[in-house]
Amino acid sequence: MTFSLAGRCARTGMFGAVVTTSSIAVGSRCSHASAGIGAALTQHITDPRLGPLMLDLLGRGFSAQQAIDSVVAATPRSDWRQLALIDKEGRTASFSGASVKPELAEAHGLDCVALGNIVRSAEVPAAMVKAFEADPAAPLAARLIAALAAGDAAGGECKPLVSTALVVADRQPFPYVDLRVDSDADPIATLARLWREYEPMAELYVARALDPESVITP
């Protein structure tokens, strides 16, 4: 009952992930990104430990496929997990265990990978990939939200969506964007609105952290 996408902006080097589901607080469990390293997704009877673990392996020099293979091999009951990963080279990997419930699917595209489980159509991840690839010049956050909306339009989830999350990592150890929507009747539309409000402030918040005097006005 979740669909998601992890992607990279080849132009800026940013990594990000976006996810939505019919249960609360999806952003606290499923989507992960690390500057200069990659982005990860972990869902379906979710083990939140696996996202950071996959990113740690990427940081140690593993490829996306090697990292997922290692996590699957070392994780008890990995048959319940659905995972995806993109690394700094734009390589992607995904895994859906034998116990992941249908409809389920995985889709890989240029600088992106998408997942879906317990969705209305197996075409949901492919629709997300197509939307993400449509405008490479757009900000990564906007591309991720567009992908989420396309997945919903392609069938979405079997239950009403209530939460969504967007995380983007740039050059710093803290997120460039970290937006979450919970207990909302239209979480994807609300996420899009939050991004429009946040976008003009994103660079300012980074500057405040790195050089406070640079943003002080007389």
Rank of each mutant, 00 (worst) to 15 (best):
C112Y: 04
P102F: 02
S96A: 10
A192C: 05
L191R: 04
V124H: 04
W195T: 06
V72L: 05
A84V: 10
P139V: 06
P102Q: 03
G156I: 01
E203T: 15
R193H: 05
E123P: 01
V206G: 08
R143N: 05
T46Y: 02
P102G: 06
C112G: 01
A153D: 07
G109S: 01
A209V: 14
V71D: 09
A33D: 14
P52H: 10
A6H: 06
D87Y: 12
G36E: 08
T21D: 02
Y205V: 15
V167C: 07
D56V: 03
L191Q: 05
L53R: 11
Y205R: 15
V19D: 00
Q43I: 01
L41E: 03
L57D: 09
K88I: 07
E106C: 01
A153Q: 08
R196G: 04
A153E: 09
V26Q: 01
M14P: 02
N117S: 14
A169E: 08
S78E: 05
L166E: 01
D186V: 06
E133W: 12
L115K: 00
L161K: 09
G151T: 06
D56A: 11
Y205C: 15
V71Q: 10
A122Q: 11
V168L: 04
Q43A: 01
G116E: 01
L58T: 11
L148S: 11
C9S: 14
G27C: 08
G38A: 13
L161Y: 01
L85A: 09
P187A: 10
S163A: 12
S94R: 00
T217Q: 03
S96C: 02
